[in-house]
């Protein structure tokens, strides 16, 4: 009969899939033509085997999945944070220890008493091994310095940019050509003249004639009080 052959086909497919003759004896007895030895199995089912039963009663709900990871990474991260802060502080301390100490910094500055310099006089001070020219300029000289057209200068710089107080001109006494010391109150422009190669500087220390390329350098200085000047 057709229905019997269908049942037999299903049994054979099931048997081959399970790899053994796990077929109920009752079913085998219905086949009259051949009698195979089969054993009873609790797992026999014609139902599909890919249906997984519902285990939700036993499983966790997935909300705390990241807890362990967050905890671990937080511990690691905070250790890294403390180490980074400690390393930064250590490096900073070592570097500041290697920086110049207070007595060395004190030697780097020099103080000049301005009350001893009358008007129209040059004074040369030694600072960090170099000569510094300080001139107490007269108002006539200041006007002369300001009257120059900047565009005609080789190194354009206005007198206002070179001085903090107009009557006190402070510059390094080193010629910008090859480093000789210019002579004050000489030269064609009423300023300084360098005898080595003939550079003329005006009353603001700017180069006017000769081989020097730049104006005389103005160092860092400040007026720590009305009568004293601190260079550097």
């Amino acid at each position: 009969m057709a229905s019997r052959s269908i049942i037999r086909t299903a049994q054979n497919v099931l048997a081959s899939r399970l790899g053994c003759s796990a077929v109920a004896r009752r079913a085998s007895r219905s086949v009259a033509s051949f009698d195979q030895k089969r054993f009873a199995s609790n797992f026999y089912t014609t139902d599909n085997t890919y249906k997984v039963p519902d285990f939700s009663h036993y499983t966790k709900d997935g909300k705390g999945d990241d807890n362990s990871r967050v905890y671990s990474y937080f511990m690691i991260g905070s250790l890294g944070l403390l180490s980074a802060a400690g390393a930064k502080a250590t490096v900073q301390d070592f570097l500041s220890n290697m920086a110049a100490s207070a007595d060395v910094l004190a030697l780097a500055k020099v103080e000049v008493d301005l009350a001893s310099i009358p008007e129209g006089k040059n004074v040369i001070i030694k600072w960090r091994g170099k000569p510094v020219f300080i001139r107490h300029r007269t108002p006539h000289e200041i006007d002369e310095a300001r009257a120059v057209d900047i565009k005609t200068l080789r190194d354009p710089q206005s007198d206002e940019d070179r001085v903090q107080k107009a009557e006190w001109l402070v510059m390094l006494g080193v010629c910008t050509h090859l480093g000789c010391v210019p002579i004050g109150e000489s030269g064609d422009f009423g300023g300084w003249f360098c005898p080595c190669h003939g550079s003329h500087y005006d009353i603001s220390g700017r180069i006017r004639k000769g081989p020097a390329p730049l104006n005389l350098e103005v160092p860092e200085y400040e007026f720590s009080s009305e009568e004293s000047l601190t260079i550097g």
Partner: peptide
């Protein structure tokens, strides 16, 4: 979940993680 929010913003990418640590150290 709070832990999921923390994880996804700070710990998913190593660049963000290390950046947070450095900023936090400062």
């Amino acid at each position: 979940a709070v832990s999921s929010i923390i994880y996804n913003t700070f710990m998913r990418r190593n660049s963000v993680f290390v950046g947070t640590i450095l900023f936090g150290a400062f």
